[in-house]
Design a binder for these strands. Structure first.
Lengths: 267, 267
DNA sequence: ATTGACTCTCTCGCCGGGGGAGGGTGCACA
DNA sequence: TGTGCACCCTCCCCCGGCGAGAGAGTCAAT
């Protein structure tokens, strides 16, 4: 009989563009039902319309084509639902980031109030229980949660708030060395937890108030302070979670000390 | 004195990457405070940190660089706030689309229920009061609202629900002819409103229930029906808003007849 | 047989990033 | 005063997902 719908007809009923259908073909998402060997014409059938629409919907949700391919290739509806749920989760966190960026932008746009209180101090060396790793910037938050959970489970008798050191490459190259620690008298060695000596450093420190969405603003202000005092940054940024999620569930009352190791410019 | 922060130092305190800063420079978003004429080295000052962070926030909100440039170039805080508000508006509508796509995807993934009731009928010619235009796909909704408001204002004695015709190029090329109409006994000619004779056509028609986010699924099902009955699509899709936003504010109770002009394939 | 609408493949551009090559620069230390 | 090394420069290519268009082949009605 008739070989099927031409690409143009198929585009018409699915409301996809011809070019897009061709791309979906060559990326293996939607194989035409038949292809004329001599002319190369693609022919589709009406049974392919629902698949095309599923692809369309997934693309509307910014699911990458590769991911769409995986979803379509998955037969088990449960596994498929999980792949989709995972993406919806990503959508949700990206929405959270968007919301945070909006409020932070609003704050940024009203005239910045007051001076930053920065303390320049010498931090003595000390022993801590720590977990270190090299991670991607995107993975820092989940990594931190896991590492901190392991730390607090392995340790007793905390001597102060936990903290983290984040290599500058983490931000400049998207990947870098990370260290989280808890100060204790007698650091254990268990699982990923190691006893580490934090070296003595000269620190420029200030306290960031509120959720961490805004923390780079405080970094910027601290950085400006450092430069304006003829100092230079030298080493990973050091955060101390003075009041953190374990102490208060409300991010607005969090207190995070952020500090950069610095040295005085000779000149 | 010292010429300022090198690009690497500036990247460190703003948490932007060096490459990104260079791009912002060449697109004119963030001009370095000074550039060494002989070496080409970029030097920044601490005063530029807030600007960099505003750019950072706007980019997190997916504001295109060009738009960011416009926002930064605007001195008047009111005008600036408006530009930002406009973008937040766009974010909101895109969020709405995302939500709609999610629910539609969920519907698509459960097994499709029942057959589609399609009516094949000959639509006689008739005179209507209409507004026609050529619009971009993205602009259809606001255009429709404006045109329909003008139509209902210009017309009295409606003989039935309003409707719209949408050229197939609108979907395939993103831009196409659009016509909205109200059936009346005596079509006026006022403003954009014209008296138009809708020609007689053979129609394959079905009714879409609920909000329009899903309407392309019904299009697909109607298209499948048309093809499976050895008919071919011929002409702009015709929608009739049997129950629309004017009749019921709840999208779930909307009824939209969608119809394609068709002709029987000789073969 | 012609015409015109359709289709094919191929290449290029867009955006906002990243990666790397190849070469110049700034500065501390020997 | 070199020498080493980290930093900086420009330039080009790659990515994903789409659009635009060229140039050639195909289908079907007249």
């Amino acid at each position: 009989m008739h070989p099927g719908l031409t690409i143009g007809e198929f585009a018409q009923v699915t409301h996809l563009s011809v070019r897009t259908l061709r791309r979906y073909h060559e990326s293996g998402l939607l194989e035409p039902a038949s292809i004329d060997a001599s002319s190369g014409y693609r022919y589709y059938t009406t049974e392919q319309i629902p698949s095309a629409q599923v692809i369309h919907r997934l693309r509307e949700l910014d699911v990458p084509l590769a991911e769409v391919g995986k979803i379509l290739a998955t037969d088990d509806p449960h596994a498929r639902a999980e792949l989709i749920a995972a993406h919806l989760d990503r959508l949700r966190t990206s929405l959270d980031r968007t919301r945070a960026a909006v409020t932070s932008l609003q704050r940024l746009l009203r005239p910045e109030s007051g001076d930053l209180e920065v303390e320049l101090r010498t931090q003595p060396a000390r022993m801590v229980a720590a977990i270190t790793d090299v991670v991607d910037l995107d993975d820092v938050l989940p990594w931190y949660d896991g590492a901190m959970a392991e730390l607090t489970a392995a340790v007793r008798g905390q001597l102060g708030p936990p903290g983290g050191h984040y290599a500058n490459e983490l931000f400049s190259a998207g990947r870098g060395a990370v260290l989280v620690y808890v100060p204790v008298a007698d650091p254990p060695s268990y699982g990923r937890v190691r006893s580490v000596e934090l070296p003595a450093v000269e620190l420029a420190a200030t306290v960031h108030h509120g959720p961490h969405d805004d923390i780079d603003v405080t970094y910027g202000r601290l950085g400006a302070w450092v430069v304006d005092h003829t100092l230079a940054v030298d080493g990973p940024v050091q955060e101390t979670y003075v009041v953190g999620p374990r102490d208060d569930p409300d991010p607005a009352s969090w207190r995070t000390e952020i500090a950069w190791p610095v040295f005085r410019l000779t000149g």
